[in-house]
Amino acid sequence: MSLFLNEIGNGIFLGAFFGLVALGYSMVYGILRLINFAHGDFYMVAAFVSYTILGAVIVGNSHAQWWTVAWVGLVVMIITGGLAMLANQLIYRPMRRAAILSLMIAAIGLSQVLENGVLVAPQWGATYLVYPVTTPPSGFNLGSNHYTWGQLIIVLISGLLALGVYFLVGRTLLGKAMRAVSEDRIAAVLMGINVDLVIAIVFFIGGALAGAAAVMTGVYYGQINYLMGFTVGLEAFTAAVLGGIGNIGGAVVGGLILGIVQSIGTGIFGAEWAIVVAFGALVLMLWFRPTGLLGERVARRM
C-alpha cells in the first residue's frame, strides 16, 4: 500500500511537468485546432538556452541561490514564449487559410529544424549536457519515500502557473476573448477582437510554460539532450488528449493522471516500460472515451 502511495507521489511530481507542457499543446489546439508538434522542441530549446545562461551567471557553484534560478527561469520563459510567438508569426500565421494538415506537417518540419539546429549549434550538440544547477538532496519523508524540497517547489510552481492560466482563461477579458476566438473567429473579429494578437498571446503563454518546465527539468534531472523534447512532447500530447484536448483543466488533470499511471506502471514493469505505459493509457482512453476525460463536457474549452 505504501509502495502504491509512493508511486502516486512520484506520479504527481512527474505529472507537474507533463501538465505544464500539455497546457501549451491544449491552448494552441483550442484556438487553432492545430496539434503543434514543435511544442516539445520549444521546451527542449528552452532547456539549452537556460543551460547557457545559467552556465554564464553561475561559475563553480552548483547549489546556486534560488533567486538566480528564479530570474533566469523568468527570462527563459519570456524567450521561449517569444520563440513560440515567432514560430506562429513566421510559419503558422501565413498558413492560416491552409488545411490544418498542412500546418501539422509544417509543425513537424519546425520540430526537425529546432532539433537539428540544436544538434549542430556550437556548445550544444548531441551529447548529454550536465545542467549547471542541481537541487540539494535535503527534504522530507512521506511514507517510505524521500522527497526533496526542490521537488515540492517544482510541484508548487507548476500548480501556481496552471492556476494562473486557469484564472486568465476563465476570468479575464483576454481569456474570454481567447474562448471567443476558439469558438468562432469571425464573430470574434466582429466584437472588435484583434484575433491575430490573441492567437499570438496564446502561443506566448504556451511557450512560456514550456520554458518553465524546461528549467525545472534541468534543475531536477541534471542533464539535457537535444532529443528530450521529442519524448516529453509526445507524453504531454498524450496528457492533453487524456484530459480532453483544448480544455485547460483537462491538460492539468491529464498530466497528473499520466504521471501517476506512468509511475505505477514503471513501478510494476520497470523503468524501460515508461513510454509503453504512457501510450497504452492513450490507446485505452481513445478506445473508451475519445473526447478525453473532460473533453466537450464541463469546464473551460479554449
Binding site: L173, K176, A177, R179, A180, E183, D184, I186, A187, A188, L190, M191, G192, I193, R301
Partner: peptide, 20 residues
C-alpha cells in the same frame, strides 16, 4: 447571429464591449 454558445450570456455581453 453567431453568439458564443459555450460562453455565458454575461460573457457574450462583456465581449461585445471588447473593442470600445
Amino acid at each position: 447571429r453567431r453568439i458564443f454558445t459555450t460562453l455565458t450570456i454575461g460573457e457574450n455581453l462583456e465581449l461585445g464591449a471588447y473593442g470600445t
